[in-house]
Nucleic acid binder design. Sequence first.
DNA 1: TTGCACTTTCGCAACATTGCGAATAGACTG
DNA 2: CAGTCTATTCGCAATGTTGCGAAAGTGCAA
Lengths: 106, 106
Amino acid sequence: MAQRPKPAIDAVEILHRRFYEGKPTRLKSLEQTRANEEIARTICELRTAASLTQSQLARLIGTTASVICRLEDADYEGHSLAMLRRIAGALNQRVEIRFVPIRRSA
Amino acid sequence: MAQRPKPAIDAVEILHRRFYEGKPTRLKSLEQTRANEEIARTICELRTAASLTQSQLARLIGTTASVICRLEDADYEGHSLAMLRRIAGALNQRVEIRFVPIRRSA
DNA sequence: TTGCACTTTCGCAACATTGCGAATAGACTG
DNA sequence: CAGTCTATTCGCAATGTTGCGAAAGTGCAA
């Protein structure tokens, strides 16, 4: 599936500058950190809304309480899609993933 | 370690039956499989919409084309949040995650 | 046909997340 | 106070994902 080779090269450079040249690669972590905090809080809210303890939720998805505790830690950055889906499934929910465009201070 | 809270245990059992007793644990994989296919297709669409080849996108996020190819494979089930965010970031997007309740034939 | 760009598959090392138990701390009750 | 339940933290083995190159497959055009 060969497409246009010439206009794409420029896009690569533009995007690259936009995200890796202007910033020390640490800035992106800020947004991710907030996203992780939100995930942790969401898990905790869903669990408590279902009147479940960490141990009970852990048993539902076949793990232990320490794992749930780790997921609900705001500083945790290792959230995986697989784990989120397991939790969602146990709570009769599903994980919806969407890519939404970022508007940069426009 | 005696643990017997009376009110919550019921909820645990109910939820457990709802998801692990009535079905052979394979059914859940079906939904996940479709979700994975959708993710793969979304990545591919976002990439092509940006007029990028797999190699170019790979370079943007600091990996190789084979990795991108693997992510765009509909049969791939190892999608991680970290990778999705890397791709989204390179394409000037962000990954939105939501837990939505499942309606079982309302 | 050849050449070229793109995609796909394979294999394995490196890294990240999970699984799990045990110990600790906090809150609440009798 | 002791007793119980819950939440948190630590460490390490097991599992899973990523990183990467190389080779082969695909489609298009000269």
